[in-house]
Nucleic acid binder design. Sequence first.
DNA 1: GATATTTGACCTAC
DNA 2: GTAGGTCAAATATC
Length: 288
Amino acid sequence: MTTLGLQGDELLAQLRELLYLPSSPATSSGDGRWRRRGSKKRCRNDNENNNGDEEPHPRRCGSGKTSNRKTKQQKSSKYLVTSVPDFDGYQWRKYGQKQIEGAMYARSYYRCTRSAEQGCPAKRTVQRNDDDGNPAKYTVVYMGEHTCTANDSLEAPVILETTAVVVPASATSSSANKQQQRRPQHDDDTAASTPLTAAINNSSMAGSCCSSTTTTAATGIIESPATSDITWSSSDHVADYSGLFPVYDSWAPASLQEMEDFTGPIRSPVHVPTDGWTIDQFLLHAAI
DNA sequence: GATATTTGACCTAC
DNA sequence: GTAGGTCAAATATC
């Protein structure tokens, strides 16, 4: 029977989907969750919360000076222009967003998720470029070096060789369409319950320190450039690898509109620091 | 309850 | 004075 082959294909498709889908449960810290958050105002000086007697919050409600403020343009070590700002192999936590003067899109600020535990100073900003090409491009600026050593630490932002995911058109016609159809804008739901998910969760991929859980509502494009195709640039150069890879639109958003603002969380597929294992190797292995 | 994100306010360099 | 960077309460979700 061909069922085995079909099953294999299906499993492969599933795995691919998982690997290149955002917020896969295989991402570390147990979540990669997508949430929509509200916001509230904080106390404005002493009026709201401090009925005059509490000492004002050192930062928010008073005069306190919390110190570690950096210089304006931090020593930006490297930056690149990409349509897939999330593929850097690290795990980032967003801590701010700011509308930048003269820019159409807000800039998002991220720091390494290990910054709290290990004091990793690595930060990055992601800003969508004004020239709205297709796909949209983002300027990602990295500041500081990773000093975190969790699990399989990587010396520098590393992206696994996952280019092979760009499947030939003939192969994508069915599976990709399927994916497009059922891929919601954001979810970890479908991914969570497949056998392959379990396989991944049990594999070294799960809980890897550097699987990136940043998420992007930016383009709806998921593509995985190979490591070798990315040039980390000093401030003099910009690496633009966005054109090197065909778009693998595996989870097209329901509405491009929601991508426009880049205000939502940024999501990215799983990155796995697997000592020489490419995802294709993993796929191959999994399929056997 | 834990954790990540949102977002306005705050702080500081320019 | 302004713009950019950061903080942290509020909040959503698991």
